[in-house]
């Protein structure tokens, strides 16, 4: 156990020694992007945009040349102080709503955006009504069953024969 620890320590020291000169020369790597904050904004924005050339990939994920150009364009526009909405407008003016992974809310997409929740409320309400009616029907049925039994009991064996 002690031996292992020593070995590990030594390995650590050797690795550290090996690593030290290299790091002293080369130092810290730098981010690809000149402005990491701007880059974050660009990535967040382009994740919700669709790459046009690809089958189904976001602008952020695509390696196609057009996607790279568009990312650069978005970067440039953000750098000049444009808002996210202005950048999105720039893109939809040229490529249409197709580039938006999040379809804008307008009469044509009402069904898309509200449909699931309307359905949920409708199904919930429907289920509640069904339960109420079901309870009444079962109550009715079981009563008549009881009545049947009573009739059977009254008729005795005759009832069973028929």
């Amino acid at each position: 156990m002690r031996l292992n620890m020593k070995l590990a320590q030594r390995a650590g020291i050797i690795a550290f020694a090996l690593w030290l000169p290299l790091s002293a020369i080369a130092g810290e790597a730098v981010p690809i992007a000149e402005d990491p904050v701007l880059e974050q904004r660009m990535i967040a924005l382009s994740e919700d945009l669709r790459c046009l050339v690809c089958q189904n990939e976001s602008l952020a994920g695509s390696r196609s040349e057009l996607a790279q150009d568009l990312r650069q364009e978005i970067r440039d526009q953000l750098r000049t102080g444009k808002s996210n909405d202005q950048v999105i407008e720039y893109l939809t003016d040229r490529y249409g709503d197709f580039v938006l992974y999040k379809p804008p809310l307008k009469p044509l997409t009402w069904l898309l955006w509200f449909g699931p929740f309307v359905l949920l409320v409708g199904a919930g309400g429907g289920f509640f009504l069904y339960l109420k009616r079901r309870g009444e029907r079962i109550a009715g049925e079981s009563l008549s069953e009881e009545e049947k039994k009573r009739v059977e009991a009254l008729l005795g064996n005759n009832g069973n024969k028929s």
């Binding site: 046009l52 050339v53 150009d69 568009l70 364009e73 040229r94 490529y95 249409g96």
Partner: peptide, 8 residues
């Protein structure tokens, strides 16, 4: 090309 919406 970008202004014309060229994608392919």
């Amino acid at each position: 090309g970008m202004n014309y919406g060229v994608y392919g």
